[in-house]
Design a protein around this nucleic acid. Structure first.
Lengths: 235, 235
DNA sequence: CTAAGTTAGTTGAAACTTTACACTAAGATG
DNA sequence: CATCTTAGTGTAAAGTTTCAACTAACTTAG
């Protein structure tokens, strides 16, 4: 809401606003987050969540700004995307009262080409250990990352969100393995399949099988790209 | 995060940022939201979610800004408080690219004194019918309110959130009635009590009973003020 | 003083779900 | 063609939910 007059002079001093992204992928070694090394002050040389300013003349809305940042850094255009929250106070950025609008993205291990450039000297995947990375992060990005990881881990318990960490076609065993790795515990095969069947969000790809030196497995795909369904119980 | 230099001249044009609140209470007639009638352009005369600017020199962080707005409008200092999200695009405010950081608050029907003032001519409770109010709302506040109501209704299914709509001391039957009114369906008494007992978030107030012309009922209170607990199943 | 009315709080049998684990199926490989 | 491996299904026992009835504790009317 707005308590003030129309002329810019009457508007109070505005905070700095950036859009920051916690971009997750699942590597063979575990969950990873994409970080960018800063090339300018403040926190020059530190790793940070990739982000940028809102381009008032270019971005139609917040999500468009976030997608622009994502595609600049990864070349990926349409992954799973969700707002994590907004973090703002007087101290987090030495340049003044600032806000970080944070989004979380889940991407499949294929389909990524890292891109450098801008005032960023490096972009790389960093493994997540517990709820942090090895490298210390710029600003309050460690806290923001923690919030994103907590959100992700919670949603694994009661939603189909982990499917977005897999490529377009996947088997039920692969999907179960993603759940197990994110949850850190083993799941019962028949119970897992029952839950997945109940919420009816994937479909077999007719005739497509994953072949190996054993019984072939049916490949599945999402019924609606980008969709997430909630269980009425934990998985 | 931040792609730019330290000097203000290098920072891009900043969006306008307001903090808006969806403040809910449960009246005998149903769920209500607190709205303020705008006294200035744009949308002068329209009802809107109460809100205000971030006071860069006064508010230490976002939540402090939101609590300041709440206490200005209602006199209530410490209700349940949660971030709903941030809404931002080029068109929602005719004055330019703007962001609304939205919080949801749940307050008990006691403990509220409405306060007018500022550029607001009126503050009043409006009943919620489905997911809207009767009056048309300023800006995109109808969409923001819809998001807040959806969040609230979803959380009723799997959390103890509705307890914050009751006064400090309440009976189990009163708590069950709140759930039933928000969900629009009746719950089984013994199943409801089992769920509530499992999560162990309230305690009986020794010796305090609600008396009427029938068997007296034990009064309970939250074990930790402001806390919310999640069920691992729907209620 | 007692019977009737009302809501609080508990109990239990039947129906349903989940769990743990074993079984059958279908391929590759040697 | 026997063996190995993973896919996918079945089932008995254990646990949970549902539905409804029951007992408890008070006020009020007569």
């Amino acid at each position: 809401m707005v308590d003030n007059m129309n002329s810019p002079a009457d508007l109070p001093q505005r905070p700095i606003v950036s859009v920051d992204l916690a971009i997750f992928a699942l590597a063979p070694e575990g969950l990873e987050v994409l970080l960018a090394r800063r090339g300018t002050e403040p926190f020059s040389g530190y790793w940070a969540l990739p982000g940028g300013w809102i381009h008032v003349d270019e971005d139609r809305n917040l999500e468009a700004a976030a997608r622009r940042v994502l595609s600049d850094k990864t070349g990926v255009a349409t992954p799973y995307f969700e707002q994590v929250g907004i973090f703002g106070d007087a101290e987090r950025d030495p340049r003044g009262w600032s806000l970080s609008v944070t989004y979380m993205a889940l991407i499949a291990p294929d389909a990524v080409t890292l891109r450098h450039g801008g005032n960023v000297t490096d972009v790389a995947w960093h493994p997540i250990d517990g709820d942090t990375t090895m490298a210390p992060l710029a600003f309050d990005h460690a806290a923001i990352l923690r919030a994103a990881i907590t959100r992700l881990r919670n949603k694994v318990e009661y939603s189909t969100l982990p499917v977005h960490l897999l490529p377009e076609a996947f088997t039920l065993s692969e999907l179960q393995a993603v759940y197990e790795r994110l949850l850190g515990r083993l799941l019962d095969k028949s119970a897992f399949r029952k839950r997945i069947a109940e919420v009816d969000f994937i479909e077999p790809i007719a005739g497509e099988m994953r072949r190996a030196s054993n019984r072939p497995a049916q490949l599945y795909r999402l019924k609606q790209a980008g969709s997430t369904v909630f269980f009425d119980r934990t998985i």
